[in-house]
Amino acid sequence: MTGKGIVIREAHFPGRAPIEAYGNGGFRFADMSHRGSLMCLPSGIHGWEPADPLVLTVADFDKLLAEAGKVEILLVGMGRDLRPLPAALRAALKA
C-alpha cells in the first residue's frame, strides 16, 4: 500500500463565519486560525496570497470579481502601511 503523503489544498472554509480576532499576521474564525491574508466571499472564506502584495493587480481579485454580483461591501486591508489601490484595480472594482 502506497500513501499519498501530504496533500496541500487551497485554504477554503465553505461558509460564512465572523472574524473573531486578527493580528500577528493572521485571523481567527470558526474556532480555527489562519496565518496570512483572507478573502471573505459569499462562497466562503479563502486563503489569499496575491502575487506581490505591494503591487496588487486585477488578477489578484479574480475570485472576488467572479462573485461581484453577490458582494455588497468591499474592504481591502492594506497591512501596516496605508497605501491607495492602483488606479487600474480601483477602476475594475468599481465596474
Rank of each mutant, 00 (worst) to 15 (best):
G3H: 04
A51E: 15
P53W: 12
D81F: 14
A88K: 06
L54R: 14
R90G: 11
D52N: 15
H46Q: 08
G79R: 10
G44N: 01
F13E: 05
E67D: 09
Y22Q: 07
P14H: 01
A21E: 11
V7Q: 12
F61T: 10
F27T: 02
D62F: 09
G44A: 10
D31V: 00
I45D: 04
P86S: 07
G79S: 08
E72Y: 06
V71L: 11
M1Q: 05
E67V: 02
H46Y: 14
P42H: 07
N24F: 13
P84L: 12
R90W: 05
R90S: 14
I73K: 12
R16T: 00
A51I: 13
L38T: 02
L74M: 13
T2Q: 12
G26S: 10
A92F: 01
S43T: 13
D52S: 10
M32R: 15
P53T: 05
I6K: 05
G5N: 07
L41D: 00
E49V: 14
P14V: 00
P18Y: 04
P84N: 02
A51H: 07
P86W: 09
I8D: 08
P53N: 08
I19S: 04
R90M: 13
P42N: 09
M39R: 06
V71F: 06
M78Q: 08
N24W: 13
E10Y: 00
G23R: 05
F27R: 00
V76W: 02
A68N: 08
P14D: 03
L74N: 14
D60Y: 12
A51M: 07
I6T: 12
S43W: 00
H34Q: 06
S43G: 04
G25D: 07
L82N: 07
S37R: 11
H46A: 04
G44V: 04
G77C: 11
G77L: 02
P18V: 03
R16I: 01
F13M: 00
M39H: 03
H46T: 05
A95V: 06
R16F: 01
M78S: 12
